[in-house]
Write a protein that binds this DNA or RNA. Structure first.
Lengths: 255, 255
DNA sequence: CGTGCTGTTGAGGACGATCAATGACGGTGG
DNA sequence: CCACCGTCATTGATCGTCCTCAACAGCACG
């Protein structure tokens, strides 16, 4: 399951693209960083990429697949905070925190492939190159921004908008890494856990969205038939995602 | 209203204490940073410290008072994301983001006093001293952690726990900066906006908390009579706040 | 003495949770 | 090939938390 080979070029590309998007100025240091991306493993759907009691010695980068950051709440519920796509860091929170949370974990929602960077190596790179450091800081800020948006979503909007908004976000983020499919590889349970709704209710919302011609009937994944209408329902404004400028024009007007 | 004098020592102390807490290793660079804290203004309760259309040239540090980060939602609601206390950064999100949000603002909830650091000066300090840079990064991560906790709170817990948790958090954070009072300078409206509840419902929850002997009847502010019981109701676990170790022992056992 | 802001109260209703069953599908082992 | 099982989707019924609307009381302020 766990190989030790260096990631092939294509996979690491997502990571580098992500960094350049976070900070266009991080040129030279990037090579240094690339050499530090050492191991590569494959994690199967349903397994934890970052487990609660894992040693704190390396940072994980998602190279392929979809994962989520989550926590198990006292009552047994799972709260999903954010989703990770190719190129995203999975556990900067553990690297940067003085007292890393023992509750946060990262789970593979599809089969995933990951790379790792030893803390020691990362320490060096960040110390030498403030531009890389800024990129990492921005990655944290971006994730923070996404969680804030999810908070607003859950706190203030009715279920239909909530689900639509969540799906919209995934659509945009997938496009940002050139996945132009209308299929989002999440199931209703995962949407419920991220949207703060019961599975039953998410199911009813899905049916409503189907009646509205927005979703197609599809098992195990979500197929969006009309993303423009979806964005309209959600009142979606993608600016908080800080997508590459190239995608800005893709933005759907609201209302 | 807006003075130009250098902040007196006592006020900047909170800022430096905060930095040391974020990264104990940032020793020398701190002096450099202190010299960069230039202006000082006083902002009155109800005014915005960071306004939507303010020039992006300086970072704001809260030196005294209480403020909040918020956004106005489409339907007119206000969502409060987090509260700021003495020593906290108010607008790192604007400094670090490639495309700063035009929706986030920071408002003074009591009369506040603030210091500012010019972007240019900060750029220099961060470039020279990776330890300071790490402290700033950690500040972002910490705020992120607080927002995640608020998300869990709003998403998964009933109103009584929600409000209790929110109040608990404020109590802890105030203690962390040596404010040992049982009075939290927030009103019911602000609690409602932060907890994602209606004002009417917050009012009823307050009455319930009074019946439980946790809160006292007090107008305009919140007076906590029994913080231990409050923490028990909330199921509060302060670890996400990354408080100085000195306060760890203050932690109330849960259930 | 109005005017605004905050807190309080009551009534009615909506949205979404919970509980409980059933269906559809794929994988596994006999 | 079929029986069995686990996961996910679906449905109906009931219930409760919390929202909305509307009105009023207390208080500070000019």
């Amino acid at each position: 399951m766990i190989g030790m080979k260096v990631p092939e070029k294509g996979a690491v590309d997502f990571f580098e693209r992500n960094l350049r998007n976070l900070n266009p100025d991080c040129g030279e240091g990037q090579r240094l960083l690339r050499q530090s991306v050492k191991k590569r493993s494959d994690v199967r759907r349903g397994e934890d990429i970052v487990r609660l009691n894992l040693a704190l010695t390396q940072v994980t980068v998602l190279l392929a697949g979809v994962a989520c950051l989550y926590k198990l709440v006292e009552n047994g519920d799972r709260q999903i905070y954010s989703f990770y796509y190719s190129g995203d860091f999975c556990d900067l929170h553990r690297y940067v925190s003085l007292q890393p949370s023992r509750e946060l974990a990262v789970r593979a929602l599809t089969d995933c492939s990951i790379g790792t960077i030893e803390y020691e190596d990362l320490d060096l790179v960040l110390e030498r190159d403030p531009n890389i450091a800024l990129a990492f800081w921005r990655a944290t800020m971006l994730e923070s921004s996404i969680v804030r948006e999810r908070l607003t979503n859950i706190s203030r909007r009715p279920a239909l908008k909530r689900v639509s908004h969540l799906l919209c976000e995934q659509l945009y983020r997938r496009r940002a890494i050139s996945i132009d499919s209308n299929v989002i590889p999440l199931n209703q349970i995962e949407v419920a856990d991220a949207a703060g709704l019961s599975v039953v209710h998410v199911n009813r919302i899905f049916q409503e969205l189907r009646k509205l011609g927005v979703l197609a009937k599809s098992g195990g994944t979500i197929e969006v038939m009309n993303s423009k209408r979806l964005a309209a329902i959600a009142g979606f404004d993608a600016r908080y995602l800080n997508l590459p400028v190239a995608l800005a024009g893709w933005k759907v007007n609201i209302e």
